[in-house]
Amino acid sequence: MLDVPALMPLDRPQQDLRRVGIHPAHWYPVAWSTELKPGKTYATQFAGQPIVLARPKAAAVFALEDRCAHRQVPLSKGVVDGCALRCCYHGWTYDGAGRCIDVPYLGKGRLPNGVRSYPCREQDGMIFIWPGDPAAAGPLPPLGSAADRAFKTRRFGRRVACHYTFMHENLMDMNHQFLHRRQMGQIAPRYLDRRKGPGWLECDYSFARTSGRQPLGEAAIVGMRRGGSKEQRDLMTIRTQYPYQTLKIWTSGDDPVMDLWIVYVPIDEAQRSNRTFGLLSVRRPKIPGLLDMAWPLLIWFTERIFAEDRAIVEMEQAAHDRQGADWNQEVFPLIRDLRETLAENGRALP
């Protein structure tokens, strides 16, 4: 911790948002479907909890805590046996509910306790678990437009070395477009409005290009724009529906041209790193194949934007860790509201 009390802001918040843990009573993706092959296991984590995913060849994916009740070795090192998972060490076997159903040298009459299981679902290329009370598990959340055939969807994500709340702030605060000036050119975001309710907050922006040409990557997403250099165009709505975020862009009419669904899943117990899972859906234009041709350019463009965002939020986390507290002097009312929403719906870390 830095010992520089003279520099401590006078309006430092009473609660350190970076010490608020994400609430477990929601569905969280912990792997892409492609990462878990038939008949195999996959080791992952949620907020420090080791989890093993298993995909039987003739049944649905299931999720257990990644330890054998016998000697505590990782079950992810084991073998999928029919619809069960057998530990690599002594062959203790667990079903999808975590019950121990076989100890080879004891017989089935004297079986020990099993391990924790997690409600598990698979949808739109992601494997979700419910880390909270299983009895409270409801339906999966809406996942944007990934299932809509009128859209082409890109699945993306990276491990990011920061608290998940930095990610929420970064996406919702479009005033940071200066960071992307090399990729986006001279864009002037205009904040329009915000709305807030229990567990959610959303805001509207419009944009004007003050100078320079429209980047080709942007054109691949929202289409080519013509007109005066200060033309007001496009509507962007960003929403935090705890713990998820969405971003939609309209250029005309009632249907968005872009629909992003994204969530930031804590990895370690201190929640100082997260794994991002994003579904970026772009509406297909009337000309068949045009979007497919532009897709590599769109991937290149979005990767560069995400790389800049990733670098800056990791710098924010590093600053927090050096200072030992949250010194941010937030002046944007929207982000003040967002921080309240995240604090109210999370829960304190130990």
Rank of each mutant, 00 (worst) to 15 (best):
Y191T: 07
Y191I: 01
D193R: 13
R194I: 05
R194S: 13
R195A: 04
G197N: 00
G199Q: 07
G199S: 02
W200E: 03
E202T: 02
D204Q: 09
Y205A: 06
S206H: 11
F207K: 10
R209E: 05
S211H: 09
L216E: 15
L216K: 15
G217K: 01
A219K: 10
I221N: 08
M224H: 08
M224Q: 11
G227K: 01
G227N: 00
G228A: 15
G228M: 12
K230L: 06
K230A: 08
E231R: 10
E231W: 00
Q232C: 10
D234F: 02
L235G: 00
L235M: 04
M236Y: 02
M236R: 04
T237I: 09
I238C: 00
T240N: 09
T240S: 14
Q241A: 08
Q241D: 08
Y242V: 12
P243Q: 13
P243L: 03
Q245R: 10
Q245C: 04
K248L: 10
K248I: 01
W250F: 08
T251V: 15
S252R: 10
S252P: 09
D254T: 06
D254N: 04
D255T: 11
P256F: 06
P256I: 01
D259Q: 11
D259K: 11
W261Y: 03
W261A: 05
W261F: 14
I262G: 02
V265H: 03
I267N: 04
D268Y: 01
E269D: 13
A270K: 14
A270Y: 06
Q271E: 09
R272G: 12
N274D: 10
N274S: 11
R275N: 05
R275T: 06
T276M: 13
T276D: 05
T276R: 15
L279T: 00
S281N: 04
R284T: 06
P285W: 07
K286D: 15
I287K: 14
I287M: 15
I287C: 13
P288R: 12
L291E: 04
D292L: 13
W295V: 07
W295Y: 05
W300D: 14
F301Q: 08
F301Y: 13
F301C: 05
E303Q: 10
R304E: 15
I305G: 06
I305F: 01
I305Y: 00
I305V: 14
I305K: 04
F306Q: 00
A311S: 12
I312R: 13
V313P: 02
Q317A: 06
A318N: 15
A318I: 08
A319V: 15
A319N: 14
H320T: 10
R322N: 12
G324Y: 07
G324W: 06
A325H: 11
A325S: 15
D326A: 12
D326N: 15
N328M: 08
E330A: 04
V331S: 15
F332Y: 14
P333R: 11
